[in-house]
Design a protein around this nucleic acid. Sequence first.
DNA 1: GTTAGCATGTAAGGAGTTACATGATTTT
DNA 2: AAAATCATGTAACTCCTTACATGCTAAC
Lengths: 204, 204
Amino acid sequence: MARRAETIEMAVLGLLHEGPLHGYELRKRLNLMFGWGRVLSYGSLYPALKKMLRANLIEEATSPVPVTRRPRIVYDVTEAGHAEFERLMSEVGPTAWEDGNFDIRFAFFGRTDMEIRLRVLEGRRTRLQERLVRIQQDLERTQAEVNRYAAELQRHGVESVEREVRWLSDLIQAERGHTLPDQSASAQPAPEQPAQPISTIPDH
Amino acid sequence: MARRAETIEMAVLGLLHEGPLHGYELRKRLNLMFGWGRVLSYGSLYPALKKMLRANLIEEATSPVPVTRRPRIVYDVTEAGHAEFERLMSEVGPTAWEDGNFDIRFAFFGRTDMEIRLRVLEGRRTRLQERLVRIQQDLERTQAEVNRYAAELQRHGVESVEREVRWLSDLIQAERGHTLPDQSASAQPAPEQPAQPISTIPDH
DNA sequence: GTTAGCATGTAAGGAGTTACATGATTTT
DNA sequence: AAAATCATGTAACTCCTTACATGCTAAC
């Protein structure tokens, strides 16, 4: 999976922007934030921190380490780290909306302009829509009856992507309307899809 | 991502069970089947084929290669390959329902007993339910208002997993009731899915 | 006093990608 | 004649995980 080098880096920088943290805690927060999918191991995090230290993006905080407490290495963002984070957050190209990157990018949306947010959201939506067209075409002229389970998997895949697209559309609309998505997309007791009108805006 | 060694192997064996194929075509089918997520590169496939050749799981088919056609290396399953596939398909432990493996496992469900299918489906559902409990707990006592975007991401994650659980529940029910899932979870209005009965095998 | 959780790391290796390299065949 | 797509591979590299190694501190 793509998840290019800067992924952990961005996540760490983003979290440290909210205050200094040490590795162990950082990992917990990261897993809490993105842990619905995969969990990050120490074997990834600690080396990444070392690397960022060397690159001077973070530094060991001159610490409020309570004496009684076991020594922990608390990190803080440097000037360079702040600049790097800004740079990463203002990227609007494919790297921003690729599968492995989008989530982290999205989680720190609060630190960017709406203009950039919109571009990233729309970029991702377009990407998913392309994917959708492709797999729907496939679905049509494939062994639909040859392998029922494979077909069911495909069908479910299509639905998942469609769902994702709707989510993005809601978010885009919310951004444009200066409001947060108001929960209405929730599937909980929902019979289904509350038919909230998506656009006063041309689709796509 | 887990996607342990046997993942490609199982997919290749499964496809070759439906008839001999050459590398290029194999890759196309694989991407068609699972391509909603990631695409498989030649750099992965060809070495895997070589390895399987060495392990005697597949062999170059004594081929129906039309003379006019450019020579292609067509592979076929060997006895050993067939046995290995059976072995892989009858595994009911965690490896069968782990994130990176489940899809492929599911796609070839047609080649296993209902008993095994049920165990794998239930295993996966349990795994996802555990995940769900964990992230819902997190969601409750987190910075819900600190970072609205992170919170929204979390909320969406919860919904996605819930959806996945419902899908699995429908499938399990369908297996038990000897019928195919009848679309009820679908968000599409689309009425189809011929509801052909799966088997007359007694319930687990 | 022992288990569970806190805390930091390293080494080895797995699984896959990208980029490179090569060439035939079909379509435009 | 060029472009697309068929077809097969290799080499280098990336990102990440598992397993190992170590030791402190809080709770039971």
